[in-house]
Each structure stands twice: as C-alpha cells, then as structure tokens.
Amino acid sequence: MRTKSMLVGVSTLLMSSSLMFAGTVSGKVTFTGTPAKPKTIDMSKEPSCAKQHATPLTTESVVTGPNNGLENVVVYVSSGAPDDGQVPAQAVTYEQKGCQYLPHVLPMHVNQELKITNEDQTSHNIHPLAKVNHEWNKSQPPGTPAISEKYEKAEFISVKCNVHPWMHGVFAVMNTNHYDLSKGGGAFKLPNLPPGKYTITAWHEDYGTQTADITITSNETKDVNFTFKAKAY
C-alpha cells in the first residue's frame, strides 16, 4: 500500500516536471465549399421526445460555426506522444435526452469508463457499431441504472439507436489523453505536450481525416490549422 502510494507520488513528480516545459498545439478547423444543409429530424413517432424540442432538431453529422468553422472534429495526437498509459479515473458520460445523444461526439481514452444514461421516458437501445472492439447492443428501458462499459482498443465507433433511427453519435476511443473536440468557430487546443515530434490528426465523421506533422520545443504554442472540403450532398 505504502509502496504504491510512493510510486504514484514519484510518477506525479516526474510528470509535473515534464509539464513545466510543455508546449501547446492550438488552431482551427474550417471547411471550404458548401456543406449540405442539415436536415430536419421528424420525431413524430416518439411524442415524448418530440415535445422536448421547441424547434425540431437537425442532423448533426456536419455542424458548422461562424467563419466556416467546422465543429465536432476530433483533433488528437496520433503518434509521437508517449502514451502515459494513464486512464482517467473519471468516467465519461453519454446522455440520451429528448431522443438525442449528448454530446454528439464523445472522445475518451482506451479503457476509460463510459457511462450511458437514459433521461427519456422511452426505451433506447445503444448500438455502437464497433469493428475492432467487441460489438454490443443493449437496451435501456426508462428508469434503469446507467450502463457502464469500456473499450479496449482505439477506434472511432459510430453509435446508433435502433429504436430511433435518427439518433446517431460517435465514440472516439483513443490511445492518448491529448485530444480535443473542435468547438464554436472550429477552435481546438492540445495543451501540455512535452517537447518532441508529433503527428496531429483531425477526424471528421463525414469528411474524413487530415494529419499534420509538427515539432514542439519547450514552452512553445504551435498553430496548426485543418481545412476540410465540404460535400454538397
């Protein structure tokens, strides 16, 4: 017990010392061209959900922000960063509310606990279409406890609810804690990167993948931008 806590203490010390010289990658994800207009989702089949949305939901596979910013892009260090192997102790939560997945894209670390909750009055089924990991398909009736799962391998997994075909989301399971999801104007930020050579990857569920190779020296903030070509249909 004591040895273990001592080890944890030492490793924390080592890590924080490396963090003192850490750099940051930040930037923006944008698109060129005209993306397809988001389509309105008709939930009339499930009245208890439909009434939760004053204005109907639209599809979330392409979400744009001001100045051609592209949201919901997973930007992460795909190689170069020694994976510290540290699985965050805190679980990530995936919420089903109003027959919508919140958040639409959920990044997580390999083996990190994933909690799925159902806030609706209807039964959902969560069907992540994993190909590398084990595929499962579980129903969650209203009022039942959260489902707890984890994924053992890195994979971007498309998530579906078979009962409500419009419900669609993504589990982004990665071997690193250095990731971010592009927000508002497409901005992202990967802090705490020790000096070194890295490959940064940006992944979008419809538009694909882009990568950038960079080198970080200590305490540097590097600007990296990604531009995706939008599809009209």
Partner: peptide, 26 residues
C-alpha cells in the same frame, strides 16, 4: 445513412429525379 437522414438511399448528386423527392416520418 440514417445519421445524415438519407433514409431511402437517394443520390441527389447524380439523380435529378431524386432532388425534389420529399421524405417524411409521418
């Protein structure tokens, strides 16, 4: 592709007939 609501598998990019098709859940 249900995520982007192409429920029927239409191809408006190449198929003119499909462009004005109306798809509804009711």
């Amino acid at each position: 592709n249900e995520g982007s609501q192409n429920i029927f598998g239409l191809d408006p990019e190449h198929d003119v007939d499909a462009r004005d098709d109306i798809v509804a859940a009711e």
